[in-house]
Nucleic acid binder design. Sequence first.
DNA 1: GTCTATATGCGGATAGAC
DNA 2: GTCTATCCGCATATAGAC
Lengths: 186, 186
Amino acid sequence: MPYPAKTSPEAILETALELLEQEGQANLSMRNLAQQLDLKAPSLYRYYADKKALEVAMVGYATDLLRQQIESGIEGLVPRKALKKAAEIYLEFTRAHPNLYALTMNASRFPYHPSGTGKALWNVLLAVVGRVTKNPDDTAATVALWAFLHGFANLEHSGMFGPSGPKGGFEVGLSALLEGFKTRAT
Amino acid sequence: MPYPAKTSPEAILETALELLEQEGQANLSMRNLAQQLDLKAPSLYRYYADKKALEVAMVGYATDLLRQQIESGIEGLVPRKALKKAAEIYLEFTRAHPNLYALTMNASRFPYHPSGTGKALWNVLLAVVGRVTKNPDDTAATVALWAFLHGFANLEHSGMFGPSGPKGGFEVGLSALLEGFKTRAT
DNA sequence: GTCTATATGCGGATAGAC
DNA sequence: GTCTATCCGCATATAGAC
């Protein structure tokens, strides 16, 4: 008869995030998570209906955090600088939380849900790009930037660049896209 | 006492490739694979030491096939056209074999091995980009292109573009990169 | 609210008979 | 070369006692 409760939805979420980053997605099991919280696995189901519900919460946290970091990081910058800064923050985020980012983007398992935190993040990127291309709803250009950022982060995290590394590929690609987007504005 | 053998390394590999595309990576188990071949799982270990060895063979097949398709597809094209064509073939490949492509690029599990088929594929991309940037060893630009292609393919396959789709983002990004690469040549 | 015990299912891989 | 039988481990999730 433990009072008060030994845990909470927030504590579970926090611990899950830590466990994900430290042990990787493959080791994020309800058993391991419970162990970290000095609990047994069945107790977790009082707070999250199933594992997917917990993952949805984790993805929501991730997209919200990234959006916040970008929004505050680009404040007061002119369009071009803002886009570059947003790209850098995005990449830094994928480096700081590689497994959380992978979970977030591996979300083909979650049904598309337009009114989520992912939509808010998308809108921030859309606005940043729009200020450069002079088109506030430039889906195509935003998709292009997103693809580049995501691809670079993913290849880097997967170790696909090998021991020699990307050799300035990020800066070159970002500059080229910016150049192309400027042309697009005229 | 079955003579001749009921299977072969080649037949196993082929069936594994089919099974991967049809059922997805999660369902590619030694048991399922054996069933497709009218075998029992233990028999497979006579031909591949373990599952990882089989996956290595699959990745080798994928990178080799993609390299071949790009090489023959760009034959006789001028540099700019060749790069565009190579990018299109790359994307088409990821659409034709999404799960095989994912396995190939998910290869952080495989140790980096410079003398594999992946290196040959990289060299083709390097040459294609080099003809545009007038630098036969332009690692940075090749990384940028690769990141864009991989990112776009990955986001598309994950359903991250949502119901509205990428809205021309591929063409816009590719043109922007090409534009930037041309500038790089001067 | 947490626990033990369990249902149920999956996977990779091996030993040893035939 | 293929098989049966098995070991061993992992997982999500539930029932019901406390």
